[in-house]
Simulated assay, not measured.
Amino acid sequence: MLDLAARTETPKTAEAVVELVAEAGAAGRTLTVVGGGTKRGIGDGVAADAVLSLAGLSKVIDYAPEELVLTAQPGVTVAALEKLVAAQGQMLPFEPPHLTRLLGAKGKPTLGGALAANLSGPRRIRAGAARDHFLGLQAVTGRGELIKAGGKVVKNVTGYDLAKLMAGSWGTLAVLTEVTIKVLPAARTEVTLMIFGLPDDRANAAMVAAMNAPVEVSGAAHLPLATARRAPLKGQMAVTAFRLEGFSASVAARAEHLAVALKGFGRTERLDADHSREFWVQIREVEAFAKDPRPLWRLSVPPAVGFRVGEALAGEALYDWGGGLVWLLSDAEPAHVRAAVRALGGHATLYRGDGPAFEPLAGPLAALSARVKAAFDPKGVLNPGRMAPL
């Protein structure tokens, strides 16, 4: 029998995870589930009797570059996977952010953590979010049962797509012990077109125009003047940027087309491939806000009204995803932030700061969420309080 005193358990097999979770449930104890521990500060504070670390489940089980499919245990680090697939001319298409500096974390982000939090970078407007590349899983429910779902091909789902359900559940439904994801060929090159000095509303209009142009933009972002002035960019004007990726000839032709489409917004400047990659890492990791102690919000809003976040809320913003994702530094009251974002048709998540991190659920959605939780973890063993206050 495992002693479930408040300590860290690091199982090496799925069977050991089953034993640990089952015994916790039988003993009326709770578990905090972590990978690299880099996102533990996000959420409403997990109050558990022990920590279940997945660091011991860190093997790549199968990688078939010719099939664009990779199966690994959840404790494999994102950095290790990025290096592995890059050696085959491939990439993790959802461009998972690490966010270690932003969150002041010391660990290394893991694949399981990226999927459990459904984390994606600027490329999601083109390639999709983490959940869109999550093909299959093996996991242990809060009941202590080992389950499998999905497979190793894209069109393999009959019935419920449990991979999609687990993505964004933050470890509150089941403990991932094996995951299968889709990878894609890496772009041969890239270029970023930049326009300087646009106010937020014009920048939003430019991003909408770029996304509607037939040029396959894979990143669109706007840094207002106050944000652009911050390190590491240290700009003198607001910056609006658009990334194009692919083969050299295709990128060059699309860049010319996009420059013409954006002509009404001002002159465009270009970043070459190396400087473009550096810039989008800064956007992906929200580096401009890494050292500011104020509360940091991740706001999801319809792209067409993204710029209105700056009008409705005091603070400093960084607009990603054509305005559909806004990072906001603000001392505004959480209730005011959530109400303002809700009025724009979006929702808010507090990534750094005091107070509930996730949007409170109500009505039918809250009832549905409770039924799903009861089906997978009826005793509340896994990550209690992570997504909702206890």
Rank of each mutant, 00 (worst) to 15 (best):
K155I: 12
P122K: 09
G159M: 01
G151Y: 06
R126K: 14
G171V: 04
A114I: 11
G168S: 05
T180L: 03
V140W: 03
A116H: 08
Y160A: 00
N156L: 01
K148I: 08
K152I: 01
G159H: 00
I147A: 10
G136N: 05
G168E: 04
G128E: 04
G136K: 00
H133V: 06
V140F: 10
V153D: 03
G159L: 02
M166P: 09
A116L: 12
R126T: 05
L173P: 07
E178F: 10
V179L: 15
T158I: 02
L162Y: 14
M166D: 06
L173E: 00
A149S: 14
V175Y: 13
G128S: 02
A167F: 06
E145S: 14
R123Y: 10
G128M: 01
K152P: 01
L173F: 10
L162G: 07
R131Y: 06
D161V: 07
S120V: 00
R126Y: 14
P122D: 14
N118I: 08
W170G: 02
R126V: 11
H133W: 08
G159C: 00
A116M: 07
Q138T: 15
A129V: 12
G128V: 02
N118V: 12
L162S: 08
G128A: 02
V157E: 06
F134T: 07
A116K: 03
T172Q: 09
F134K: 01
L119G: 11
V179N: 02
V157D: 12
K148Y: 07
A167N: 03
I125A: 02
G171M: 03
A174V: 04
I125L: 15
R131Q: 13
A174Y: 04
N156V: 00
Y160W: 10
L115D: 04
R131G: 02
V140H: 08
V183W: 00
L176S: 04
A167S: 13
A117F: 10
L135P: 01
V175E: 09
G136I: 05
